[in-house]
């Protein structure tokens, strides 16, 4: 804002606080619910202040030490989700940065065709190809494995496209200077292109980690073994218990725990790519 009027400042802060409240309130209520016994949560009025069951509820869900809970320990599910999300994020970035490098810097027959082939897959969401993908995964004995969770989701047209666009902005002279310095394609990639892509990689990592973390349909299909279940699938299993009221404090505790890794990733990587943005020089 160019003008600095007091009323305006107060107003914009008020709007910000409202927005914040809308976002934070459900999370807060979830946290409150996770610290009470079940009957406290089910009777009106619902509690608005944290209760005294924090340690009990959280240790119970983390260790899976709950009778008839119908789910693997949350620690295990968190670990599964972490492996899957990291695998997807790292794998997608690794594959797309290499494909984009090939498409931008190498001349090979049908180069444009291959680029458009990759690009066209953007138009096919996971759901469209889920049955054939499941068939393939089943035939390769990938069900109930980390590879099965990760590999089918790893190819990324979006990331390839983003890296391609970024590489096109690196001046040609950079490549020529590197050629004169004697850098071959691999050295140029490692010494020049990757460091210059640092900020893009950081931003993409955050987006892709959350994308992987939030996967629901595919993990639901490809894992039948409870020990391979992911946290997002696990939460929905907790709610759909047969012939009983869901145990909301445990569900909410699990939900809060499921929030933590994406938040940690965002906080850590944000620092990374803000620093990158500050140092950016052309």
């Amino acid at each position: 804002m160019i003008e600095r009027r007091r009323g305006l400042t107060v107003f914009s802060h008020a709007v910000l606080w409202c927005g914040l409240a809308v976002v934070v309130l459900p999370v807060y209520l979830a946290f409150v619910a996770s610290t009470h016994p079940l009957d406290a949560v089910l009777t009106a009025p619902i509690p608005v202040l944290p209760g005294d069951m924090f340690w009990e509820n959280y240790t119970a869900v983390l260790t899976g030490d709950v009778a008839n809970f119908g789910s693997a320990p949350v620690v295990l599910m968190l670990a599964n989700s972490l492996v899957m999300a990291l695998g997807i994020a790292v794998g997608k970035i690794a594959i797309s940065v290499i494909s984009a490098y090939a498409i931008v810097y190498f001349k090979f027959p049908l180069r444009t065709l291959f680029f458009w082939l990759i690009f066209v897959t953007l138009m096919l969401p996971v759901e469209v190809r889920i049955i054939p993908t499941f068939e393939v995964a089943a035939n390769l004995a990938l069900l109930n494995t980390y590879q099965g969770l990760i590999l089918p989701l790893i190819a990324s047209a979006t990331a390839t496209f983003l890296f391609r666009q970024f590489f096109l902005t690196i001046p040609d002279q950079m490549l020529e200077a590197a050629r004169i310095d004697g850098a071959g394609p691999i050295r140029f990639f490692i010494d020049i292109v990757l460091p210059l892509s640092r900020t893009n990689i950081a931003a993409l990592f955050v987006i892709l980690f959350i994308y992987g973390w939030n996967q629901y349909l595919w993990p639901l299909l490809v894992t039948t073994d409870q020990d391979m279940g992911t946290i997002v699938v696990g939460i929905s299993n907790l709610i759909q218990v047969a012939e009983a009221e869901p145990r909301w404090p445990y569900v909410m505790a699990t939900t809060i725990l499921a929030l933590i890794p994406p938040v940690v990733v965002i906080v850590l990587m944000q620092r990374q790519f803000v620093r990158g943005l500050v140092e950016q020089e052309k």
Partner: peptide, 20 residues
Amino acid sequence: LEPKERGIAMVFQNYALYPH
């Protein structure tokens, strides 16, 4: 010959320094 084998060095208009 490749550029590096020619015994040349080049100064570019936009300098082409490695920014990182």
